[in-house]
C-alpha cells in the first residue's frame, strides 16, 4: 500500500469533485448538458457543444471500447517501476467522451483497438478511487 500511495493522485477541485465522489461510490458519472444531452469529459464549466451552463452529473453505462493505447517502457516515475511495461489506454465511452485509464485482467499483448470494455473501481487510497476498465467477455 505504501508504494501504491506514492503514485500521483488526481487533484480534486470544485469542478471535478462530483466525478471523484461518484468513483468512490463505484459509479462513473460524467457531466451531461441539460439543453443538448452532450456528455463532456474532463469536467468543465459549460457544454462545448451548445455553450449552455446547465450541466448536470449523470451516471454513465460504464461501457465503451478501446480507442487507442500505448505501452510504457521508459520509466518516468519511480512508483511505476515494477509495472513496466504497462499500458495506458484511451477508452471511448458509449456516451462519447474518451478517458485515459488502464485495463485490468488483460495482458498488454491482448489489447486491441475496438475491444469492448467495462469500468471497474480500484480503491487506491481511502479518499481516491480510480476508474479502470476490463474486457467485456465476448459471450455477454
Amino acid at each position: 500500500m505504501i508504494e501504491r500511495n506514492q503514485k500521483p493522485l488526481p487533484r480534486i477541485d470544485e469542478v471535478n469533485r462530483p466525478y471523484w465522489e461518484a468513483a468512490k461510490r463505484h459509479e462513473l458519472f460524467l457531466q451531461r448538458c441539460q439543453e443538448c444531452d452532450h456528455y463532456r469529459y474532463p469536467p468543465g464549466e459549460i457544454c462545448p457543444s451548445c455553450l449552455s451552463d446547465r450541466l448536470e452529473w449523470a451516471k454513465t453505462s460504464g461501457r465503451g471500447t478501446v480507442y487507442t493505447w500505448t505501452v510504457f517502457h521508459q520509466l518516468y516515475h519511480p512508483a511505476f517501476e515494477k509495472e513496466i511495461p504497462y499500458a495506458v489506454v484511451a477508452v471511448e465511452l458509449d456516451e462519447g467522451p474518451k478517458l485515459l485509464t488502464n485495463l485490468v485482467d488483460c495482458k498488454v499483448e491482448a489489447i486491441k483497438i475496438g475491444m469492448p470494455v467495462e469500468v471497474i473501481f480500484d480503491d487506491v487510497t481511502e479518499e481516491i478511487t480510480l476508474p479502470r476498465f476490463r474486457p467485456v467477455s465476448q459471450s455477454v
Binding site: L9, P10, P42, H77, Y86, V88, L100, N102, V124, L130
Partner: peptide, 8 residues
C-alpha cells in the same frame, strides 16, 4: 493532469 495516476 489525471493521467499521471494511471502512469501517463
Amino acid at each position: 493532469g489525471t493521467g499521471a495516476a494511471y502512469g501517463m
